[in-house]
Design a binder for these strands. Structure first.
Lengths: 337, 337
DNA sequence: TTGAAAGCGCTAACAG
DNA sequence: CTGTTAGCGCTTTCAA
């Protein structure tokens, strides 16, 4: 391990004061181009890297962004991390990950960590985005945060999301476009804000196409494989079957797929199946699932951005927010009626 | 945001010097029990939390552990994080996650981060555990690291692993115990150290049971769903089918499952299928997959432990290492022949 | 068993 | 445009 080189070494090497080095490091104005170049050359020559602890102790930035999660879906979590880090790296920030058990004492988990780490901001993923105690703890400690895909209370803090209703609307349109008229729907977990929006999108699309929705074609699920499986058993049990099933997440769609396989139903020949989320599981099945790709990576990146560049909301104005584009991913599980 | 309380506040409150407060915080010896109690009471009363930046700037510990990953399996990554954090929290450490693209310039990705953050140690997950440039960069910067499930060069640094050979051996035994004699095997990615060990376990078990292994019952896969699918097509294409297929990871086993479904083969009635890893996908299928659960959580915890408590290896002695127990998870995809 | 003083490496405020 | 002087909140000497 080579002896650590500090800002003083760079200052000496380039013949300026440490303050000037600090200036170019932080891209502050009022540095002659020539001086800046000299300093940068010295930084490169010495391979100098500022010590993050010293920076955060002396200054107001910690160069640390936190990600809180309590998400059962590892794919979602990893995606958020990758999206956030991609943005953070460009600005020399790092990511601290903190799982938070939403069923345990929040105060105990969150407050100490917020106090010791003094992060510049925290990204909240669902279901934490809507957890009152978490929001309260963050606010009490004065740590800025951005919520990803919050379900409600949208004026409380900055957030990033996508239009779940529209996505479900378009997926339903896709099915209708394929000639389906008898399309069943499996609702997601009722506590999940997005679940209700997806349901709405389905209903809106059916209504706009003048297609009736029979009561027995809409089943309640809980976003789990099992609940999808059970819903499908009801939907596909009799001779009077729908020609397509739109499950409002991939796990449930996979449950539908399993039932279809058991019943020796050809997919998509006899039954089209659509999911939502584009989890890794959507491709780990045969046929591969038609689904909606959430812009998780981009949402996390946008959230990190807001945190790094400050999310000061003006007094009275609504907090900054962003709605990003989703993508319909048409694969093999849907076909003509 | 309440004004930050510092070590001085605690010192004043408890009537001692800041050095004494520091002593009880760090559990140093030579503090009278009575004094220690007074300080601890003050800490609790004030809800004091030491500032991690100040600690790491002044002292030798950073209270930060890094996790490097470049793993396509989100489930694995998340498990590692949860396992490491569980242990870290007890000791006031935090986790920095850093994806590393093993196909890009390692030096560029790793060196700057190591220099700025000065972490106490880094946990390496496969395939990074065997990436020469990553190991070299860590060593050059003098940052201790622990490798999870390394494939070779075991004397180079501390590591934590499980016995892949034995696990595959036992899974094969499980199949044999069910009455299967014609068991096919799908090999994993050849670059992956564990893949070869799993293959060995299969061969050993077959040999020990005096069961012949036909050449056309062993297929090469790449740990992907598609490769498992293709291997299964060869294995199950003709009339002469094996009664069981052991795929050396879950993704490939799911590929086998998909082929079985297409061919209208009853699982496990006509075909038993076994996987390896116990990924979330193992349960998101019907029937659920019999597989091997890796002690990922425990391995990561052990790695974090080594890093927090120092992994100084004695001169000449082999580096510390741990082999943890796996678990055979018997679900519905395997049955009597 | 305790405390005083001296920084760790940087940024912030103010002078020049 | 640039430098000087103070700290940030701790741990580390070294004394007492």
């Amino acid at each position: 391990m080579s002896a650590k080189i500090t800002i003083h070494d760079v200052a000496r090497e380039s013949g300026v004061s440490i303050k000037t080095v600090s200036r170019v490091l932080n891209r502050e104005p009022n540095v002659k181009a020539d001086t800046r170049d000299r300093v940068q050359a010295a930084v490169a020559a010495l391979k100098y890297r500022p010590n993050i602890s010293a920076r955060s102790l002396a200054g107001s930035k910690a160069y640390l962004i936190g990600v809180f999660f309590d998400n059962p879906s590892p794919g979602y979590v990893t995606d958020v991390q990758l999206g956030a880090i991609a943005r953070c790296r460009q600005e020399g920030f790092h990511l601290i990950v903190e799982p938070v058990d939403s069923t345990a004492d929040i105060e105990e988990q969150v407050a100490p960590m917020l106090a010791t780490l003094r992060m510049d901001g925290v990204i909240l993923t669902p279901p934490l985005s809507d957890h009152p105690a978490v929001l309260a703890a963050l606010e009490r400690e004065g740590v800025p945060y951005v919520r990803i895909a919050p379900g409600g209370d949208l004026d409380r803090a900055p957030w990033v999301s996508m239009d779940d209703r529209l996505a479900a609307y378009e997926m339903t349109r896709h099915l209708i476009g394929l000639g389906h008229k008898d399309i069943a729907f499996i609702i997601g977990h009722p506590d999940h804000g997005a679940a209700m929006q997806r349901r709405q999108g389905y209903f809106d699309a059916m209504r706009d196409a003048d297609l009736p929705v029979r009561d027995d074609r809409v089943e309640q699920g809980w976003f789990s494989f099992r609940s999808g499986f059970e819903a499908a058993e009801k939907l596909l049990g009799g001779a009077d079957r729908p020609t397509a099933i739109f499950a409002s997440n991939d796990d449930m769609a996979l449950g539908v797929m399993a039932v279809a396989n058991r019943l020796r139903l050809d997919v998509p020949g006899q039954l089209s199946i659509a999911g939502f989320d584009d989890t890794p599981g959507a491709k780990i099945t045969w046929p591969q699932l038609t689904t909606v790709r959430q812009p998780i990576h981009a949402m996390a990146g946008a959230a990190a951005d807001m945190l790094m560049h400050g999310v000061d909301q003006e007094e009275g104005a609504p907090p900054p927010s962003q709605v990003l584009d989703f993508e319909l991913v048409v694969r093999e599980s849907t076909g003509t009626a």
